[in-house]
Design a protein around this nucleic acid. Structure first.
Lengths: 198, 198
DNA sequence: TGTCCTGCCTACCATGTGGTAGGCCAAGGT
DNA sequence: ACCTTGGCCTACCACATGGTAGGCAGGACA
C-alpha cells in the first residue's frame, strides 16, 4: 500500500474542510497548516483555490459514482435496487462523512461548481429515473413524477445524513449507532411510501 | 402602512443574502451597497456582523413560528394538521424563498447560531413530536421514531424547496408552478408513507 | 439660542485572503 | 562534475474584510 501523494493528501484535507466548514470558510492557509505544508505548496499542485475545488469535485463524483455502480451491480431487482443504493450511500456516509457534506455544499455554491458535479453524475441520475419509471409502469411502485420523486429521495437521504444540527436539536447525538437507526428508519419510510402492497 | 425603518430594511437585505449566498459569502459592504448605505450605518444598527445574524435569526424564527402557529390554529385534526403545516411552509417559501434558505444556512453554520434558532423553535418541535406520537398511538399513522420521522419530513420539505441546483440538474426549472407541483408530490408521498389505510 | 441626540457619514486600521515571483535543495540522468 | 527537474519554501503584494474613531447635519427641546 503506497502512501498517498501530496496532491491526494491535499484533496483529502480539502474534502474534509469544504464538506464540513464550507468552501468560503476554508482558507488555503488553514488547509496547508493541517497538512504541515505552506499555502504555496497547495498552489503548486492546484493553481488556484477554484481549481482545487474542481479537482475535488471530479474525484468525489468519481468515488460516488463507482460506489453506487458497485452497489447496483451486486443488487437484485425491484425494491432491492433502491435498498442497495440507500445502503451504499449510508455506508459511504459512515466511512467518509464529508463526502455527502461536499455534495450539499457544491449544490449550495451553484454554478459553475454545481454544473460540474451535475454533469459527472448525470448518467446515474438518468439511470435512476429510468428505473423508477419502469417500476411504476410495472405496477410495483406508486405513480409519481420520477424526477420529483428522485429529488425527494435525495433530499431525505442526504438530509438525514448531513443535518447534524437539526439532529442535535431533536435530542439525538450524531453517533454511528444513530446513523444505523436513521438508515433503518428511512428504508421503512421509503418502503411504505413507494411500494404497492401485494 | 408605515414604511419599514432602517433596521428592518437591513434585516430584509441580510435575510436575502444570508439565505441565498450564505453568511460568510456576504460582506457588510455588499449588503450596504444594496441598501444605498455605508457599511458603518449597518454597524450603527447592529454592532457586529454576528449580532446582525443573531437578530435576523430571532426575527426569522418568530416569523416562522407565527406562520406555523397560524396554520395549526386553523387546521382540523389528524392528517389535516400535517397537510396544513406543509402547505404553510410552502406558502412561506413562495412568499419569502430566502427564509428557508436561511434556516438551512444556520443549520450549516452550527453553534452558536444554530442553537439560537433551535431554542426559538423548540416549542414547535416538541409540539410536533407529541402530535406524531399521539397519532401513532391512535393507530392513524404507521409507527416510527417520532424524532427521526420529524427529521425526515424536515429534510424532504426543506430539500424540495431549497435544493435549486439539484432541481436544475433534474431538468426542472425552479418556477412558481414547479413549487406547486413539488408541494403536491410531497403531500402524496407523505400521505402514503405515513397514513394507515382504513 | 444653545445643547443634546439620532442617524448617517468619511477616514482609517489590523487582519486575513488568494495569488505572484523567485530561490533553495536533493535526486537523478549524462 | 554538471545540469535539469520536481517539490517545497520565504518574501511579498493587492485587496477585501470586519471594525474603530470621530465628525457633521438636522430635529427636539430647554
Amino acid at each position: 500500500m503506497a502512501e498517498p501523494g501530496t496532491a491526494d493528501r491535499i484533496l483529502d484535507a480539502a474534502l474534509v474542510s469544504f464538506g464540513t466548514r464550507g468552501y468560503e470558510a476554508t482558507s488555503l492557509d488553514a488547509l496547508a497548516e493541517g497538512l504541515g505544508l505552506r499555502k504555496q505548496s497547495i498552489l503548486y499542485w492546484f493553481s488556484s483555490k477554484e481549481v482545487l475545488l474542481q479537482a475535488l469535485i471530479d474525484r468525489s463524483a468519481a468515488e460516488l459514482a463507482t460506489a453506487l455502480q458497485h452497489a447496483l451491480d451486486g443488487a437484485g431487482d425491484g425494491w432491492d435496487r433502491v435498498e442497495a443504493v440507500v445502503r451504499s450511500v449510508f455506508r459511504l456516509a459512515a466511512r467518509r462523512p464529508e463526502l455527502l457534506g461536499l455534495v450539499r455544499e457544491v449544490g449550495r455554491l451553484g454554478p459553475p461548481a454545481a454544473t460540474r458535479l451535475t454533469l459527472a453524475l448525470d448518467p446515474l441520475v438518468a439511470r435512476a429515473c429510468a428505473f423508477l419509471e419502469a417500476e411504476m409502469d410495472a405496477g410495483h411502485m406508486r405513480r409519481h413524477e420520477p424526477r420529483l420523486l428522485l429529488l425527494a429521495i435525495y433530499s431525505t437521504v442526504v438530509g438525514m445524513i448531513t443535518e447534524v444540527e437539526v439532529l442535535r436539536a431533536l435530542g439525538e447525538e450524531p453517533t454511528a449507532r444513530s446513523l444505523v437507526r436513521r438508515r433503518q428508519e428511512i428504508l421503512r419510510l421509503l418502503r411504505s411510501a413507494l411500494l404497492v402492497e401485494p
